[in-house]
């Protein structure tokens, strides 16, 4: 796929990438600027504010009414558990769709795609009522529980991810499992021991995508979680800008930056998993 580039080939590639990075970072730098600006404005007139302050970052770690570290921990917990379970559930489903031929397979795939497209304008009310009922019998799964929130996220994550993974499984040659099954492995063992390790890149991709999606989800979390100590980051953040005319953009920006850093840190090791797929053989240096 790739071969060694001439110096010119390298040059334009790096230039293109740096152009992209400029595009990616341009607004982010304004957010960074807002996080150091004591006036709490979002769109400053100058990139470098007249006075710089670390006040907003200090607030994040010292304001007991807005326990940012707790929010961060809650979010990593919720998003992490959701992401891991999603990957497992999707892999199971995708394996069935990819390897078995059964009645209702095509229509099942179509349905999986379609149900995700429903405009979820009223979903939050429905989900609220569902968790309310559940909570009457299983308090640890009801409103205002992280487990309840995780369940909700799991439901929303299935469709497209299963599809995506199924497509990837389709490209893994069947001969590998078939030889394993000749040796006496059950289909589940073949799935667990052979398909999953080969599909590592896609597992990592779905892990990170699902992690980020749950990490930033606001609407459902805000309606299900009550009480500052239970909040996830997205819900907690809104606290700083809740009043139409008294928005603490500086603190919000600082928290956004911290949140983004956490994701980038998590993404760093996962990158290696994503790249560790079948193409590894391609690298001949």
């Amino acid at each position: 796929m790739y071969s060694r580039h001439s110096w010119f080939g390298l040059l334009w590639r790096h230039l293109l990438i740096w152009l992209g990075i400029a595009y990616a970072l341009f607004p982010a730098i304004w957010v960074l600027s807002a996080s150091f600006n004591p006036t709490n404005t979002l769109v400053g007139q100058k990139l470098i504010p007249a006075r710089l302050t670390l006040e907003h970052y200090r607030t994040l770690f010292s304001d007991p009414t807005a326990p940012f570290p707790t929010w961060l921990a809650n979010t990593v917990k919720v998003a992490g558990v959701t992401a891991v379970i999603t990957v497992l559930l999707c892999a199971l489903g995708a394996y069935a769709f990819s390897r078995f031929r059964f009645r209702g397979r095509r229509s099942g795939l179509l349905m999986l795609l379609l149900v995700q497209m429903f405009p979820q304008m009223l979903a939050m009310v429905a989900i609220y009522l569902l968790l309310l009922e559940l909570g009457k019998y299983f308090p640890w799964l009801g409103l205002n529980t992280h487990l309840g929130l995780i369940f909700v996220y799991l439901g929303g994550a299935m469709g497209f991810n299963t599809w995506f993974m199924k497509g990837y499984f389709d490209t893994i040659p069947r001969s590998l499992e078939e030889s394993a099954m000749v040796d006496g492995a059950t289909p589940f063992q073949a799935f667990w021991r052979i398909i999953l390790p080969l599909a590592r890149p896609i597992l990592a991709v779905i892990l990170i995508i699902q992690f980020i999606t749950s990490y930033g989800e606001y609407i459902l979390a805000s309606i299900l979680l009550k009480g500052v100590d239970r909040y996830t980051l997205a819900v907690g953040l809104r606290f700083f800008i809740q009043e139409a005319y008294n928005r603490r953009w500086g603190t919000f920006a600082a928290a956004s930056i911290m949140g983004a850093i956490v994701i980038v840190l998590i993404f760093l090791p996962l990158q290696r998993l994503i790249i560790s797929g079948l193409t590894r053989g391609a690298v001949k240096e």
Binding site: M124, V125, I223, G227, A244
Partner: peptide, 14 residues
């Protein structure tokens, strides 16, 4: 219970 001002009314209705 602290709830963001912008969300108070909607959440109360629900």
């Amino acid at each position: 219970v602290e709830i963001a001002f912008a969300d108070l009314r909607g959440q109360f209705i629900t």
